[in-house]
Simulated scan of single mutants.
Amino acid sequence: MKQYLLAIMLICSSFYYAAAQQLKVATFNIRMETSADQGNLWKDRATPVANLIRYHDFDIFGTQEGFKNQLDDISERLPGYARYGKGRDDGGDKGEHSAVFYKKDRFTLLRSGDFWLSETPGKPGKGWDAKCCNRICSWVYLKDKKTGKKCYFFSVHFDHEGKVARVESARLMLKMIRDIAKNENTVLVGDFNGDRNSEWYQLLANSGILRDTYRDVKVPYENNGSFNAFGKALERSEVIDHIFITPKGKAIKWGILTDTYKGKFPSDHFPVEALIQF
């Protein structure tokens, strides 16, 4: 009788996990390559960045600020991941990317695309009161080979100067997610250059379309803010890198990963991770 009950429990458990889709997702601003970062040059950070990703074993993660050569370095060190994302300057390889990486052996890429955070999202350009930079969002539509379930994943980097640009970018993100993903399961990650009190964060978090995964977790792992300035801003507690999901999802864990190497930091941002389930 006990063996029979155990068998029934195992069968029920297998059905449950087959029906559910559990994903370890992350957002990681890897910091662009620049000679101004003496002591924290990309050539020294590339391997620690890849090692961090490998160890934490993300299923899908979005990056911000990476130039093509930086993304190539990550791909070379982590051949188990495929990636998608275009350069913000020309829609090709030029400029920083908001690329998405996903495990090749787990996901099939069904669709992908990019749009710019501006009044003309279909072409490269600055939006509203943004002064220095084009801003881009890249997205993928993935099918989980194990469960058959599908989800959209968006990676974005909001402007760091223009307040109007950040507010309007939040509105644009909601519109594009409605238009592209419609009612399907969706994850939005990125560097939003705004903490939980910012107007643009509030627009996203209280939209009814998206919810911050942080809110789902009773005890989040939050010993620091998400921006560290290569150790110069460790006293800051603001979180400006966020992971949002649509209402059918739920976060089981959420945390800011404060990994270091030889007393240094892989990036000027800490990656943020969430274990989610649809």
Rank of each mutant, 00 (worst) to 15 (best):
L5N: 11
L6M: 06
I8M: 08
C12F: 15
C12A: 10
C12P: 13
S13E: 10
S13Y: 15
S14Y: 14
Y16N: 05
A20Y: 15
Q21P: 07
Q21G: 02
V25Q: 04
I30A: 02
R31Q: 12
L41S: 14
K43W: 11
A46H: 01
P48K: 09
A50L: 09
I53P: 00
I53M: 08
I53K: 04
R54C: 11
D57V: 06
G62K: 14
Q64Y: 09
E65G: 08
E65Y: 14
G66V: 10
N69E: 13
P79L: 12
G87C: 02
G91K: 07
D93T: 11
E96R: 02
H97P: 01
S98T: 07
F107L: 05
L109F: 09
R111V: 09
G113Q: 05
W116M: 02
L117M: 02
L117T: 01
P121A: 08
K126D: 07
K126C: 03
G127N: 04
G127H: 03
D129R: 07
A130K: 01
I136W: 11
K146I: 12
F154T: 05
S155H: 15
S155M: 11
F158P: 00
D159K: 14
R171S: 12
L174G: 13
R178I: 11
D179K: 05
A181F: 08
K182G: 01
N183A: 08
V187A: 08
V187C: 05
F192R: 06
N193S: 08
N197I: 04
E199A: 05
Y201F: 12
Y201P: 01
L203D: 09
A205R: 08
N206T: 12
S207E: 05
S207M: 03
G208D: 04
T213F: 07
Y214C: 00
R215Y: 07
R215M: 03
D216E: 07
K218D: 05
V219W: 03
E222R: 09
N224R: 08
F227Q: 04
A229F: 15
F230H: 06
G231I: 14
G231M: 11
G231P: 11
G231S: 02
K232Y: 13
K232D: 10
I240K: 03
I243W: 02
K248R: 11
G249C: 15
K250Q: 05
I252K: 01
I252L: 14
W254C: 00
I256H: 02
L257D: 09
T258Y: 03
Y261A: 14
Y261C: 07
S267L: 02
D268T: 01
D268N: 10
F270S: 00
F270M: 13
A274C: 11
L275M: 13
F278R: 00
